[in-house]
Each structure stands twice: as C-alpha cells, then as structure tokens.
Design a protein around this nucleic acid. Structure first.
Length: 582
RNA sequence: GCGCCCGUAGCUCAGUCGGAUAGAGCAUCUGCCUUCUAAGCAGGUGGUCGCUGGUUCGAGUCCAGCCGGGCGCGCCA
C-alpha cells in the first residue's frame, strides 16, 4: 500500500530528526486537493509544537532526511508545516502491476489479527421479523464481513429472544386456540395470532381482560421454567418454527451466523452470576430486588441496574452478563461488539460497568455499536398505515417488486427470469445500501424512490457502474479475444489525467477498510465506492477502451479489471450481490 | 430533573477523530447520444456549518453556556 510505504519512510526520516517522536502519531493521508499532491502529513506541526520549534523548519528538516527513491520524487513543505508527497508514475504502475498479478487488492490485512465476536440481529421467537431488525442485521453483517476481509477471526452469534414471560401466554394460546391448518400454512402468523389473543386477555384495562387466562399463563410459564416435559416440547417446537422463518430471511439477505445461542442457553448460569455479583459486593438488596448502584459514576449515578427482580427472576442485564462471561471463557475474544438500537445505550453502559467490576482482569473490549431509527415519510418510526410493524419479508418482497419494475422498464428485452434475478440483487441491495449509507447514529427516512434511484449514491448506481465494466469484457469475449490480467499488466501505462486519478483512487481502499473496522462505520466504504464509481465513469467518458490502440487498449483493460475487482470486493463486503448486466 | 444523540446549501444527507478554498444527490439553469450501456458525463446557481464565548499556528470537528429537536431513565427486552 503506497501510503503505508510513504509512512514508513517518513517515520524513518522523523526518527533521524526527532528521535523522541512517537512513530504511531506520524500518519500519511491522501491530500484533500490534488493540487497539493497525492499524500500529506500534518503530524509535523504537532511535533514542532511539542518540541517548541518552528514547524516549517522542522518539516524542511524531515523533508531533507526523507529518502524514498522511486516512490516519491517530489516532496514539499507547504502552508504552516504540511509535508506534501507526490507519487512517481513508476510507483503507481508498479503497485497496479502487483495487484494485477494477484499480490494484493489495494489493502493490507491487520497487522495483529484479533478475535472479534459480533452480536447482532437478535429476533424474537414466535414473532415475525420486522423493520426493527433490519439495521442490526445489515450493519452487523457488513461489519463481520469487513473484519473477516482484514484477516480477523470473526464469530457471529445471534442472541435470539427465545425466553421470557411471553411464553406463558404462547403456551396458553397453543393449548386452547391453535389452528393446526393455519400453523401449517404460516406458522409465524398463527403464533402471532394466538399470542395477541391471549395477550389481550392478560392485559388489565383491555375489554378482553380475563383474570383466569392471566393465571393460566403464569402457571404455564412456571411449568416451562420448571422443565415440564409437555411445555418444553411445545416451546422447542415454537423455536424450531421460528428458526425456519429466520433461515428464510437470512437466506434472502445473504446473512449467516456461526452461532445462534438464544437467551435460554444461559438460563442455568444466571443464578451463579447473581451469586458472584452478590458475594463480590457489586449488588445489594433494594426494595426486594438485587441492584447494582454506580454512585461514583456521574453518568450512571441516577441509573441503578437490577440484576434480580423482586420476584426472584433474572432480567436481561443478568442474561447479558452471563452471555459475556460465556463468550469470554469459550472464545477468549479481544472484542465483543453489540449492534443494537441507540435506545439501549444506558443498558449496555450498565452491563459493561458491572462486568468491569466483576471481572477487572478481563482484557476484552466490549463495544456497543448503536444506530438510529428508520423513519417513515412522516418522520415518525416506520410503520404500516394501520400502525403495525412492517414485516421484513413484506419489505423485501416490495423491494424486489419495485426493482423489477425499474429493470423491466429500462431493459425490456432481457428474458424475464434474468430480469427477476437482477431485480432481486438490485432490490435487496438497495435496501441494504440505503441502510448502510447514512452515518449509523443518525435516524434516516426510508424512501423507496431514493434507494432505487439510478443516480446519486445508491445501490443501482454502483451496481450499474460495475456492470458497465463487465460489459466491456463481455464485448471483448464476444469478439473472440482473450484477456489475461497478469500478462496484460506488463503493458500498463498511465498518461491521461482520468487514468491517473482512477489509479490513485484505487489505493484508497486500504485506508477506508481499516477506518470501517476501527470505527464500525460501513458508510465510509459506501462513500469510497461511490467516489470510485464516479472516478471510473469519468475515465469511461474520457478514455475509450476497446476502441483505443494497443498498448493503451490493454493498459486500460487492466485498469478496468482492477477497478471492477475493488468495486466487487467492496460491494461484497457491504453484502451486495453484483449482477452480470443490468 | 438527570443522561445520550442531533442541528451543515431550498430539500435529504456526507464530512475517516483538529488541517489547506466545507462536499454529494435531489431541485433549478447550460451543454453532451451515427462512438465500449445517456440507468451516464461536463459545467453554472446555491453556505454566518443553530447562537454566544473559549482553547490554538489552525475549529463544521474539542470545551462551556444558551436555543431548538429526537431518544432513554428499577423490577419489558
């Protein structure tokens, strides 16, 4: 990676001039404006301040000590003390040639691979997956793919909601209201129906309220918790039915999990966790419950956390603590990342703080990667017209349907099965991309028109840019020519501004991938790929490929293929599939 | 009351952790299809980065206060 090579030479130069400087702080970044150069460092200004010397003089001294033959032939001090680097064309050609030979794809894997556990999606048993699960699922999957690409050991774990008071009601419904034919047809809908019916009877204040049903539900729950054979069998059946639904949705989304250890998996560990917290003096009795207080932390002072309710049952704080402990002992991770809604910030602050007190020696970094809400056009959380949660399956159906209309409208000559195939990739891709593009912490307004637009920073635009490249190679193949990237690389020359700009932009892949992993923000990658697609279309307009004369023609084919590879890899990391044509 | 987040072009939003003249898309205006996919490209218009102070070579970015909005806050998860 060119910027890493410059960084390395720069650190060597700084070490000569200022041996006390921290090499880790000496960073090289792309210039914001190509007129300044290709790369810059602003680290010397901070260093000059620390040494109380003139920043421009220091920069000049470092520039004089800087030696990178063949990499940068010009290096200059600018402004208050920037150092600007300009790549030699040979360095660029060499790097592209190496990429064409398969030595790299413009990124380096992590210097110190880590074990990262990603906890995301977490749907509930017996309920349809809905829009509330989409951001966690898509964001978590994109992060998992990013970490994997960078060489980390990644473990994805779906912490399914398969335990809790709702099962008392579900059991009553199963035993008294179940319609076997309906269960056969659409299991989740039937489970949802019986749950709603019983829930209404158990809700004081509702017209259907019926104390007998409420007591029945409590009784069924107690029997389930006690391990009653019949109830356990029904419960397992409900989980199995739900997992079929999850598998269907995840299949459509192309998301996979290494594990799906639900809440119930930790049931027999909860008492032990509570006992340990109690004996360690981390929790104490308060109003009948066991509670952790954080008097010394301003942020949590007023927000104690219950780990055992006054009825003796554990809650999700306890389950999350047991889960974290299990993950530590089982996988010994460096990081555990929870991808959830921002509304759970307080909860995770509490869990992490309790855990820190409980196991101060643990080296794991827990992280809460939170995101904002998906809003409807009315700026309220996205719902159906009647105020229900939108089912994920329905949303994906609509995405494919709308994409099909676009594809069929633009390209009516394609055979219908292919149109559907393309529409599937474009539609699902559009939903995913729309979710990954905004800064994850901001709320965003869900808009079919925007996500399926053909211009702007959208999935269709990016997929289209990639298929344009594929189209060039299809034309090439149709004329009976063969193209071998590694061999063709020998003919690489970069002369036109658009060629140089594209070649340089390919080298930004490394920085952006590491930034995504570091900050858990896939939107950086979205923006990078959009810029790359823009650079490519600029090149595509300015530089004819197939109509050019050799060796320029071959050289441009190399650029096309490398761009396609970066685009395809980047889109794949975001979880998007790439059609051959559109 | 306490805490978290947000406020950037008419609209929707980026802004890689303090760097150089704040960027996209939409909308609007002007050009470009006998030429590898015009689902595209090039260019114009459009900004007191909520307000006020502070920190420093340098602030959309950090700190304090204020205004406006969203969300959360003991036995749901």
């Amino acid at each position: 990676m060119l910027h890493r090579q410059i960084e390395e030479r720069l650190r060597a130069a700084v070490a000569q001039v200022a041996p006390e400087a921290d090499p880790g702080a000496i960073l090289v970044r792309p210039c914001p404006d190509a007129r300044f150069g290709d790369y810059q460092t602003n680290a010397l200004m901070a260093l000059a301040k620390a040494r109380r010397t003139n920043p421009r003089q220091l920069a000049q001294a470092v520039a004089d000590a800087f030696d990178a033959p063949g990499l940068c032939d010009q290096i200059e001090v600018a402004g208050p003390g920037f150092l600007n680097f300009r790549l030699t064309p040979q360095a660029l050609v060499h790097s592209l040639t190496e990429a064409a030979r398969g030595r790299h794809l413009f990124f380096a894997t992590a210097a110190a691979p880590q074990t990262v556990i990603l906890d995301f999606s977490s749907p509930n048993v017996a309920k349809p997956m809905h829009v509330g699960h989409i951001r966690s699922t898509i964001l978590g999957d994109a992060l998992a793919r990013t970490f994997r690409l960078l060489g980390h050991r990644v473990i994805t774990d779906n912490h399914i909601g398969d335990w809790g008071t709702q099962f008392g009601m579900l059991l009553v419904g199963w035993k008294t209201l179940l319609d076997p034919a309906a269960l056969e047809r659409d299991p989740i809908a039937e489970l949802e129906r019986i749950y709603r019916a019983v829930n209404a009877r158990c809700s004081e204040g509702k017209p259907e309220f019926d104390r007998t049903t409420l007591e029945q539900a409590r009784g069924e729950l107690v029997r389930l918790q006690a391990g009653d054979a019949e109830n356990t069998a029904i419960w397992r059946r409900m989980i199995a039915l739900s997992q079929e639904q999850f598998a269907t949705i995840y299949g459509r989304l192309g998301v996979r999990f290494d594990h799906a250890l639900g809440e119930s998996f930790y049931n027999d560990r909860l008492a032990g966790v509570v006992r340990e917290l109690e004996s360690a003096g981390i929790v104490r009795e308060s109003e009948g419950a066991l509670v952790a207080f954080f008097d010394d932390l301003p942020q949590l002072q007023r927000h104690p956390a219950i780990v055992r309710k006054s009825d003796g049952a554990a809650n999700y704080t306890t389950t999350d603590l047991a889960t974290l402990q299990y993950r530590l002992t089982t996988w010994n991770p460096d990081a555990v990342i929870y991808v959830t809604d921002g509304r759970q910030q307080l909860h995770f602050q509490q869990v992490f703080e309790i855990f820190r007190r409980w196991q101060p020696q643990a080296r794991v970094r827990p992280a809460h990667v939170w995101f904002g809400s998906i809003l409807g056009e009315d700026n309220r959380p996205l719902k159906t017209r009647s105020g229900e949660n939108i089912k994920l399956a329905d949303l994906l159906d609509e995405a494919e349907e709308r994409a099909l209309q676009v594809v069929a409208g633009k390209n009516p000559d394609l055979p219908e099965p292919e149109q559907r195939q393309i529409a599937r990739m474009v539609g699902i891709g559009a939903v995913k991309y729309a979710d990954l593009l905004p800064n994850r912490q901001s709320d965003y307004v869900f808009s079919w028109d925007k996500m399926l637009a053909l211009n702007g920073n959208t999935a269709p635009y990016l997929l289209y840019a990639a298929t344009r490249i594929r189209s060039i190679f299809r034309k090439l193949a149709e004329s009976g020519e063969t193209f071998d990237l590694a061999t063709a690389a020998a003919h690489l020359t970069l002369n036109e501004p658009a060629e140089l700009a594209l070649a340089k932009h390919l080298h930004g892949f490394d920085l952006v991938l590491h930034a995504v992993a570091e900050e858990h923000r896939p939107n950086y990658l979205c923006n990078y790929l959009y810029e790359l697609a823009g650079q490519f279309t600029g090149f595509y307009e300015a530089c004819p490929v197939l109509r050019a004369e050799d060796p320029v023609r071959t050289s441009r084919l190399v650029l096309c293929e490398l761009t396609l590879r970066v685009l395809a890899r980047g889109l794949h990391v975001l979880g998007l599939e790439l059609p051959d044509r559109m």
